[in-house]
């Protein structure tokens, strides 16, 4: 049993009886992110799966204050909260923006880049479920090659996923971390750390989505774990530009025993039309990224 399980904040900020889907990877991740962020936090969200999780007026499933904003405006909304809190002398509140990959990689990127360049003192969290899941699984720039979505129904996605982490790295921000619901304690620890750091912090969570990715809800943690085991998603931290592997990715990097991508691909219906060529390109893409990380870790 994980000994550090007992250090986790016991308070639940995401209440039961909410509207998230069965086995939602976001719901699991959000539960621990909120436990780590705890009191004295203000959230801001664009229209996304979290809007649904937060619930319909006049009731909400989340006990942390939250301002809903428009799709493109998440990071600017956070910047406004920070400015308003500073202007009214409430400087000890942490402002946290949560957006999906659409609200981060695609529509939200301009405001995010602006806020990061200004060094806005906030945490931006991208929960990456690799598509527009709230509208029923359409292609985003975070969708991996070979995945079926409702807007790539026959040919599957023909391009690779955008490397948002590299884009954020290029902004020279205070803290970047990746997390996964397969490792809730690692996720929790990184959010606790992010809350303590000043400046712009960017967190990306790999969030499996049972209906969007096409696997049974019971397998969410398994799929999330396989994403790490195959290296398609890598757990790391960058503090002031200094890269280090964390958790399971760290031991994979040390032992060199990553699983082949097919172990991850074959369990998801979204990849059922992936061609041999695409699979090999995707494996190569994953290997190249992994090697980039190994180089970064060497310093």
């Amino acid at each position: 049993m994980p000994e550090n399980l007992f250090k986790i904040n016991k308070e639940e900020y995401m209440l039961p009886g909410n509207r998230s889907c069965q086995g939602c990877g976001l719901s699991l991740s959000y539960r621990y992110a909120l436990k780590a962020l705890r009191e004295n936090t203000i959230l801001t969200l664009p229209a996304c799966c979290l809007t649904v999780l937060h619930g319909l007026y006049p009731t909400t499933s989340v006990t942390i204050p939250c301002l809903n904003c428009t799709f493109a405006s998440t990071a600017a909304s956070a910047a406004g909260l920070v400015a308003g809190l500073n202007a009214t002398g409430k400087t000890d509140t942490t402002v946290v923006a949560f957006a999906g990959d659409g609200g981060t990689f695609d529509m939200g990127i301009q405001a995010l880049s602006g806020a990061a360049e200004r060094g806005t003192d906030f945490i931006f969290v991208c929960y990456d479920n690799e598509g527009y899941m709230n509208t029923g699984t359409q292609r985003s720039s975070a969708t991996p090659m070979g995945a079926i979505t409702t807007t790539t129904p026959i040919l599957t996605k023909e391009q690779h996923k955008k490397d948002m982490l590299k884009i954020m790295e290029a902004h020279d921000i205070a803290y970047i971390a990746t997390t996964s619901p397969a490792y809730p304690i690692d996720l929790y620890d990184k959010f606790v750390k992010a809350k303590r750091i000043k400046g712009t912090r960017y967190m990306q969570i790999c969030v499996p989505c049972p209906p969007g990715w096409g696997y049974p809800p019971r397998d969410t943690v398994k799929i999330a774990r396989l994403a790490i085991e195959t290296g398609v998603f890598v757990l790391f931290e960058m503090e002031n530009g200094k890269f280090r592997f964390t958790g399971r990715s760290k031991s994979l990097a040390e032992k060199g025993n990553r699983l082949p991508l097919i172990n991850y691909i074959e369990r998801q219906d979204r990849f059922k039309k992936i061609s041999e060529e695409q699979l090999s390109l995707l494996q190569k893409f994953t290997d190249n990224k992994w090697n980039e990380y190994l180089k970064k870790a060497e310093g």
């Binding site: 493109a72 405006s73 910047a79 406004g80 400015a83 202007a87 009214t88 409430k90 405001a111 602006g114």
Partner: peptide, 21 residues
């Protein structure tokens, strides 16, 4: 807040006003 667009300028006004500024 020297924003990167007018869309963000109005957004900043909205959220800053929401927290009482």
């Amino acid at each position: 807040v020297r924003v990167e667009s007018e869309h963000s300028a109005m957004t900043v006004c909205i959220s800053a006003s929401t927290v009482g500024a």
